[in-house]
Design a binder for these strands. Structure first.
Lengths: 184, 184
DNA sequence: AAAGTGACGACAGTTTCTGTCGTCATGCAC
DNA sequence: GTGCATGACGACAGAAACTGTCGTCACTTT
């Protein structure tokens, strides 16, 4: 694979994240990223479609959730299927520090937020498709995905804020909270 | 205001949408848009921050929803407040044909989808803030906004698909459907 | 040993976006 | 009416993002 150092892609990701944190996203050049990784600007574009994509390389979540949905017990409702998939998945796939640095940079720069949003929507569409595959009708699949992501977001927020409860319990609590708000 | 033709901004929007439909987004140049509107490329950037923004000029929805939220009856729950705001608002603020052409182009080009998504999220954040302003706590406001937008999306989808029911009824039906899915 | 492959550098070129300055029509003061 | 501010505009110049193309070089396959 790699002729020189190896892990070219990882070196580019690391260099980009470091530079974004040091100087900000718009003041760092693709040429700078490539140079710090020991490459040329042209080579950067062989590994990533554009400057933003360098922080969104992994399809980790998709690889986690989709099999978990397919493996869910037969005859389960759409929303419970999603929630078990969310619960059965490890919270951290990369070193935690990397994720936090990355999230900080993304939150601070609008172009990266845009990219993150479309990644999330694309993932959500795949969740919908997976639910439809299991026999749910389209509108139910959409609705369950909307509800499920809202629950996931609330549970994750509380988890980040320091709530160390078991994640399955956090999901169940958030689900109950949503039902309460929806009942009004 | 306008020295020559007047409505410079509108001319640019119209030229951009037409060109995007004729040749696609990436094959049309900012210089082309400006030329068709009788201007220079440099002048385009005096009216829009970047090439994508030309299709997202109006803050119409925000101008509709926020006052409606503030005008909602005292003591109403967070979700009902949103739903009344959604119901009390006209569905069409621009000529319907313009909206459809625009939506088609956006759906077909990823960079425009990204921009649309961040516009929607920004609007949602303002809805949350408006709810917090009315005394709701942050998590409830978030949850209600997530639920409310899911309901709005389902109702709008059915409306577009040809369901000519009164929009308030469509919202109520979608709300009921969501409760059903959430109950499982 | 010869041929194939895959990552890379080296250009050249287009397009997006920004900074800066001069121009010119309109409006307002005097 | 003359002088002066303002605001939209054109005309550059230039940085940075991205793309196409070609040659090179290490490594692998046969």
């Amino acid at each position: 694979m790699a002729r020189w150092e190896g892990n070219t892609r990882g070196r580019l990701e690391r260099a980009a994240l470091d530079l974004f944190r040091e100087q900000g996203y718009d003041r760092t050049t693709v040429a700078q990223i490539a140079q710090r990784a020991g490459l040329t600007e042209r080579s950067f574009y062989r590994w990533f479609a554009d400057k933003r994509e360098v922080l969104f390389g992994g399809d980790d979540l998709e690889a986690c959730y989709l099999p978990a949905i397919q493996a869910a017990p037969e005859g389960l409702g759409a929303l419970p299927t999603l929630l078990t998939a969310f619960a059965a998945t490890p919270q951290v796939l990369r070193p935690r520090e990397f994720l936090i640095e990355r999230a900080t940079v993304i939150a601070a720069t609008p172009p990266l937020r845009e990219r993150e949003l479309i990644k999330m929507v694309t993932l959500a569409e795949k969740l919908v498709a997976a639910l439809i595959d299991r026999g749910h009708d389209e509108q139910t699949a959409h609705l369950a995905t909307d509800i499920g992501t809202a629950i996931l977001r609330l549970a994750t927020t509380r988890w980040i804020l320091g709530d160390d409860t078991d994640f399955t319990t956090l999901l169940a609590t958030a689900h109950q909270d949503l039902r309460t708000v929806a009942a009004t």
